[in-house]
Design a protein around this nucleic acid. Structure first.
Lengths: 213, 213
DNA sequence: TTATTTTTGTTGCTTTTGCAACACTAATTA
DNA sequence: TAATTAGTGTTGCAAAAGCAACAAAAATAA
């Protein structure tokens, strides 16, 4: 399933028409700034127009978990959130966000119907993609041991790139964060996997030496 | 956010028109039967018309994890799946399923436009709901200790019912499954919580004795 | 109603994991 | 380029969790 962008099949002109219909507004944020601190209760539908942003949860003990990293044409809104704790949206780089009221996308428009149909199709496809990605993550998180979490994660990268030479797309510290395991315990397990000849590893570069499927 | 059904705001007549447009087909399954063994690759959009079904993953070691339990008017499809392992759809009770090709929902229909708009709105809302529920589950799974997983889960039930007297909606065995923890370790932790006076518990009935928020 | 299966509750033991602390390297910013 | 911050790699120890096994209760089927 190829990644769908929210503006798939829509020209820049079409995009302008849509955003105009939605009464969308645009805001700019500098690197490091908190874009939103109440993601759970927002009624806005948000599109990242440029830059990179992180959706972050702060735990009781002060540690943080990156829930999602978003880039150009990715979307976020109340659906990105868990109901329990509040999530923060933070600009990883300078970023531009377009926002409009969530219910706008359900309006029946008499003009530009084709554009709205296309937009709707994109929304459905993106949500379905996100749901699948989230289900992937659940599968990894439900693995009981650190070893299985790692192997499961490696396999998902393998299937994405169809290569046994994979590169972790973020720092090892963030990987531990993503897998929800202790970093030092993860390093220990990586070492075990190396010692047992299952992988080669240097920093974020990992070579899978075991048979897959 | 109230739960949206796929046929929200659509009369039975409207439903028939839609399903006719979609060239939908209906199938019946007896309790215990495997409805589908290749959820990952299906191109169908499926609706549960009656009964209860489970989406299940079988782990290497033979244990199973219930990914989702679905009832009347719930939907499932490739978006329900993780890309790694294959998921099974199994009839928990006698069940009736309606299926049609996934791409049908993106067709531009000249007739019954309002119905299709409404259906599309329902699809988006349901997917957003599911995404939120899945994010909830991720939050619970990222908790590091059994105690925190339990408390987090109890809190989510508390927030749903706004009562400190909660009832686990499935067996304790399945709860351990859902939280991805060892059942006996979970029982031990439940006992600890009781001994420390944080909860009362008898079977699936739990009373929360601690201060929330 | 009895028999059978599933679920609950419990415990000892072992393994895994998290925590804390520290040295070292790489990357970023002044 | 130097100074500062962020990330990597490692270890000992303590705490938490998994595994295995079994008895008792509850639910379901015969």
């Amino acid at each position: 399933m190829a990644k769908t962008s929210i503006f798939n099949e829509l020209s820049f002109q079409d995009q302008d028409k849509l955003l105009n219909d939605f009464k969308a507004r645009s805001s700019s944020f500098s690197k490091g700034v908190t874009i939103m601190s109440n993601l759970r209760t927002t009624r806005d539908f948000n599109i990242v127009k440029s830059g990179t942003i992180n959706i972050i949860r702060f735990n009781y003990n002060g540690t943080r978990t990156i829930i999602e990293t978003l880039e150009e044409d990715d979307i976020f809104g109340h659906f990105s959130s868990a109901t329990q704790e509040e999530l923060y949206v933070i600009a990883e780089t300078d970023a531009e966000i377009i926002s409009f009221n969530y219910d706008q996308i359900f309006q029946r428009y008499s003009k530009n119907i084709d554009l709205h149909y296309q937009f709707n199709e994109n929304v459905v496809k993106i949500l379905a993609n996100k749901l699948q990605a989230t289900n992937d993550r659940i599968q990894i998180l439900t693995e009981k041991t650190i070893r299985n979490k790692l192997l499961n994660y490696f396999n998902s990268l393998y299937k994405k790139n169809l290569s046994k030479n994979i590169t972790i797309p973020f720092s090892l510290t963030n990987l531990a964060d993503y897998l929800s395991i202790d970093r030092s315990a993860m390093m220990r397990e990586l070492k075990n996997l190396k010692d047992e000849g299952l992988i080669n590893q240097k920093g974020k570069k990992i070579q899978l030496l075991y048979y897959i499927n």
